[in-house]
Nucleic acid binder design. Structure first.
Lengths: 218, 218
DNA sequence: ACCTGAACACCGTTCAAGT
DNA sequence: ACCTGAACACCGTTCAAGT
């Protein structure tokens, strides 16, 4: 009951109570539409129907607002990651699914991915909620590796370290694809597209983590 | 002789002949000092001792100037990459050296690495010289994989595709490290630092590319 | 050919003043 | 407590005008 009343109030008055959330959503819209590099706090305020100074009553500065958009991205990634592995039989299958899903996320939610990893947040320590959101996906990956260790389906020495290796491989593929850093003309000539690239990355990663191979000492 | 005269002229008159190069160097200094995200074209012009409008006689816009800084970075990367593999005996050793050097470059020349891969250049097709500089390092990597294929020291199916896999793994590690995306507190607890991380990435990569393992079909 | 000064349309951020 | 208007110190870019 009181929730309903509060909601009704919120609907009618942007300027009382829910402006903080309205600003975050306006910023997210702006980021999707124009990119984080063109995000303007004044434009966000305009979109929310308040003065240019209003956001400063809810966020320390532009970066603090962007940190919230960033957090939305990490929560979306965690949700997608969890959904991608339900029902899969073993750790190698889950590892593959997480890798494919990570790149899919980067490509589909391009703008968010850039906010999350584009260096817009200088010191994540300043935003504890962001930090814990960001760590969820990494913990999920670590758990999958631990499962592989138990099952004997993956050669895992030290789960946190091997999780970093997996993350790096897949993150690199995602970055190169979304930044347009790949030599597209050559790839086209060679018959390689982004999908076949990420398949190869995941294949090699599984191979590098497959049990039953001696340690190399090159 | 005429070269000497031209050089002397250039030294005495910023505003005739070499302003273009002076602006590129001023921009590079600015990027190293404050970061590409804070680069201001007006500040670059001030540093070069010319008016705010002067750069527009040499560069279409801010992005075109940044593209030249970017190119400097790719050329430095190529030089370092080539130097890192001279005298090494086989392809696996070269692959390792290239990987370690890539991350070293990203960390030492942090500011340049960000310009190169931070999405500052929207369409690299607009800057052909940049594009060919950027492809040199990738071609070097492809050649190493071809050598491994000939030697039988690496299991390479298709060099361009496997080169993308290697690049992705190492690039991901570099990005995560320089963006400060790693959960540093947890890493410290687990006794993992950036150096041991990149070692693991390269080890797993070599393992994924080692000959004599059956194909997984998970 | 190359450079400047002034102008336009923006920014992020602060702060006294309002309700 | 929350918001505003005005101000400050910046931007990128354009363009007529100068040499």
């Amino acid at each position: 009951m009181r929730d309903t009343i509060a909601s009704d109030m919120a609907k009618n008055q942007y300027h009382h109570g829910n402006l903080r959330q309205a600003l975050i959503e306006a910023a997210a819209d702006q980021v999707v539409e124009f990119g984080a590099d063109r995000l303007s706090l004044r434009a966000v305020a305009r979109r929310a129907g308040v003065s240019q100074a209003a956001p400063y009553h809810h966020f320390k500065d532009k970066e603090a607002l962007l940190a919230e958009v960033c957090r939305m991205g990490f929560e979306d990634l965690r949700t997608r990651s969890e959904a991608s592995i339900v029902g899969l039989p073993d750790a190698p299958a889950k590892l593959r699914a997480l890798g494919i899903e990570y790149v899919r996320f980067a490509r589909e939610r391009n703008a968010f991915f850039r906010v999350m990893f584009g260096g817009y947040i200088k010191d994540k320590e300043c935003y504890p909620e962001l930090k814990s959101s960001a760590e969820c996906s990494f913990e999920l990956l670590t758990e999958v590796l631990m499962q592989g260790q138990r099952e004997g389906s993956l050669d895992v020495n030290f789960p946190p370290k091997d999780a970093l290796v997996c993350w790096a491989a897949v993150h690199g593929a995602a970055c190169l694809i979304v930044d347009g850093a790949l030599p597209e003309d050559k790839m086209e000539m060679a018959g390689i597209d982004a999908d076949s690239m990420i398949e190869s990355v995941v294949d090699r990663l599984q191979r590098g983590l497959a049990p039953g191979v001696g340690v190399l000492t090159s």
